[in-house]
Design a protein around this nucleic acid. Structure first.
Lengths: 329, 329
DNA sequence: TTGTATGCGTTATCAT
DNA sequence: ATGATAACGCATACAA
């Protein structure tokens, strides 16, 4: 007995149009077919409301036109904007996107990779936190912000340059005693280079600097105490602060203002990321801007091998500075 | 000649283990298989690094364990947070998610729906702006924020209640002359009911109210002029303003402060959405909070038919009020 | 309980 | 140029 209530197949179309299966396939895929046949097939397709089954196609051709993106979450504006751009790039290439949010969970990351391997995705873009993530040989993989060995290209902002730029900017703006505030000490990824870049910048511009690096999970309170300890007679010892992210900067600015310290008059603050979700409406702070769209484009380009071969596995894209009300000028 | 460099299949595993194809299938799917066989199969799977081909599975079983989400973009925090929650709900059900960003483009929305139909997704969740979107009969569809007819369930915040709540809150806080500011007049969707709810609240609490509703694409400047026109001798005629979104509220607050009007002392402002991306760090404004997580859960529940049948096609979830510094108290 | 055989919808390789 | 037919990898009904 014939299956009822099921979508029509090429076979049904062929029967309806009175032609052979292969002919229908050719029409569907735009291969040359003579007029009387072509027309009959197209009529039958319309009449039956036929749709190709991409699953059967992918099954046959081993190409799924699907790329997966692994990100921790979409809460963080950096992640959501990055996801947005990657999605648009894929869309332009008529490619589907599997979204996988991992919540920084290494096991979940690995689980997802296995699932994606089963799903025969054409490629994976991963912003992951599992230092020993096993990525399958057969699937093109591009990493963001973490170098995963010589065979896997890694795309990141030039975090070192960003740190250096922050120090230089603070120096240019008249600071002499600066601080670097950072969370998430344990990870060995590209954003860690912000510290080295900042140090380098401080040294070359002869700035006095201190650093406070929080362990994983430590609350922001420690920043508050650190800042309070460096205030004497209502004046802050620091006149410039570089924060590892805009989020930290946002917290620090609040704390400083609560301590009656004026930003930017007494202390200038620079963050990192530079996301502007409300257009130009919401500059949280002056910031080092990550080129999110370019990161997305580069990942896709690498995945589709649109770049000349033999490139270095680490691509650091240049950052820029944006004024946002927490520095002078 | 045998294909080289291709992933091993069940057949390869069967040969390696010296058992029949069906036995391998059973082991893979967790069906009962006696010990000596089971062990041999598992060994062979490990040895060959075999992975099931989900595409072949889906092709065979007509279930893809994939749901698609249509949203305009991920710039807007409401959309990105909604996407986040939907993704997590799907993850809990071991279901993949296709992300489709449409940029409010009706043609693109329709194009995506067709593509998803081809892809045999198990369901579609759509936050769409195409009033005449054609959704296929065969695929479960849940709409967010827009009613699409009797056969398609729609999930939304209780926008009417939200508007009413805003009016009542302003009344409670001592306002007497209030305004409603809104963009995007043309659409016929659930968020439109914020206006009616607000009006209703104003009438029942005897507030004087005015409304300014911008046409699609009109710049926010018009809000600025409207506000400026209602200022005399440095005092605002309005003492309370309800904005259709937090984004509009954010703009309005800035404008008011530029006009030397104090918020919340002179004018109290309430927005809509209540997204807090930086945790509790960033209250942009007092706001009516959409229950984003509950919206996500409800959509998934409807898709998986986890609710008792016969429910109404429109589900309005209750909203709440949150204080954010732009109202008194 | 295990093995065998068939078919899912499509593409591709053949003859015609 | 078109039509018949054989894979693709897996699940399953059925036979052993």
């Amino acid at each position: 007995m014939k299956k009822v209530n099921s979508s029509p197949t090429m076979k049904d179309v062929a029967r309806e149009a009175g032609v052979a299966l292969g002919t229908v396939s050719k029409v569907v895929n735009g291969l040359p077919v003579r007029e009387p046949y072509k027309h009959k097939v197209e009529d039958a397709i319309r009449k039956l409301d036929y749709h190709v089954n991409s699953y059967a196609q992918g099954f046959k051709s081993n190409r799924t036109d699907t790329v997966a993106l692994l990100v921790p979450n979409l809460w963080d504006p950096f992640f959501s904007i990055l996801t947005h751009h990657i999605n648009r790039e894929l869309q332009a290439r008529r490619c589907r996107m599997f979204l996988c949010t991992t919540d920084f969970n290494p096991d979940l990351e690995q689980e997802y990779v296995t699932m994606l391997q089963n799903n025969k995705v054409d490629g994976i873009i991963g912003l992951t936190y599992n230092p020993q993530l096993e990525v399958p040989e057969g699937i093109p993989f591009v990493s963001i912000d973490r170098s995963m060995g010589p065979h896997i290209p890694c795309v990141a902002s030039d975090n070192f340059q960003g740190g250096q730029m922050a120090a230089e900017k603070l120096a240019d703006l008249g600071c002499t005693n600066v601080a670097f505030l950072r969370t998430g000490s344990s990870l060995n990824n590209e954003p860690n280079k912000r510290k080295a870049g900042f140090e380098n910048g401080c040294l070359s511009r002869k700035l006095n600097y201190e650093m406070l690096i929080l362990d994983d999970g430590e609350p922001y309170d420690k920043f508050d105490r650190f800042l309070a300890e460096h205030i004497e007679c209502g004046r802050s010892y620091f006149d410039g602060i570089f924060c590892v992210t805009d989020k930290v900067a946002y917290h620090v600015i609040k704390t400083l203002r609560n301590l009656q310290i004026k930003v930017p008059e007494d202390v200038q603050v620079i963050g990192f990321d530079g996301i502007r979700q409300l257009g130009d409406l919401d500059p949280v702070c002056s910031s080092i801007v990550q080129p999110v769209e370019e990161i997305a484009q580069t990942c896709i380009g690498l995945l589709f091998r649109e770049f000349p071969p033999g490139r270095l596995p680490l691509i650091c894209l240049p950052v820029t500075y944006t004024y946002g009300g927490t520095t002078r000028e």
